[in-house]
């Protein structure tokens, strides 16, 4: 009787173990909250995106980064699709350089490719606050927003230079 009870208990334990193992094997992949490691990301800066993916280990984890400008009411089309490497345990992390100086916010969405398909995270929107420079409103060229010739001026200078050389050479012959 005791032997039978032991056998029964052993079978139940094995069954529970098998059941738990199967649960683990088919555990649904869940993507945790997306974290941006920088506290105040700036337009044009490099951001670090981190996310936890639990359950079945995905074959690939990607993040889509879309930059938008609320000033001009546009979301730029050059969406970045970056693969996130696993940096240990269930954490996936990647550095992404933001492309648009005029962007006021960006959104991130993580996609995990698993055996049961592609699973996506909730969207994370991050507002960016650009520190005003000390009363200097000029753009990067220091042109105060006025368009000045660049490439054209180089060609023009070459033209003038060549002409001068030709004239001088002829004159001193």
């Amino acid at each position: 009787m005791k032997k039978q009870r032991r056998k029964f208990i052993l079978m139940v334990v094995i069954m529970i173990g098998l059941l738990l193992t199967s649960f683990q094997a088919t555990a649904e992949t869940t993507i945790g909250e997306i974290t941006i490691l920088q506290t105040n990301p700036q337009p044009g800066s490099t951001i670090t995106i981190s996310v936890n993916v639990s359950g079945e280990t995905p074959s690939q984890v990607n993040v889509f980064v879309e930059e938008c400008s609320n000033k001009t009411g546009i979301c730029f089309s050059d969406t970045q699709n970056v693969t996130m490497p696993n940096i240990g345990s269930d954490t996936y992390q990647v550095n992404v350089r933001l492309r648009h100086e005029e962007a006021t916010n960006f959104t991130c969405r993580v996609f995990a490719t698993t055996s049961s398909g592609i699973i996506h995270s909730a969207i994370k929107t991050v507002l960016m606050y650009k520190e005003p420079t000390d009363g200097n409103q000029s753009d990067h060229n220091g042109t105060d927003g006025k368009k000045t010739p660049g490439f054209e001026m180089i060609l023009f200078s070459i033209a003038v230079g060549l002409s001068l050389i030709i004239v001088l050479r002829k004159r001193f012959r």
Partner: peptide
């Protein structure tokens, strides 16, 4: 002599101005 040299330079100027305008409008 000087006038001749200037006349000879006209094609160079012309080519340079063509290049200049190509550069100018290629960005637009």
């Amino acid at each position: 002599m000087m006038m001749k040299n200037i006349v000879k330079c006209v094609p160079v100027f012309f080519i340079c101005f063509v290049l200049l305008f190509i550069g100018w409008f290629s960005g637009c």
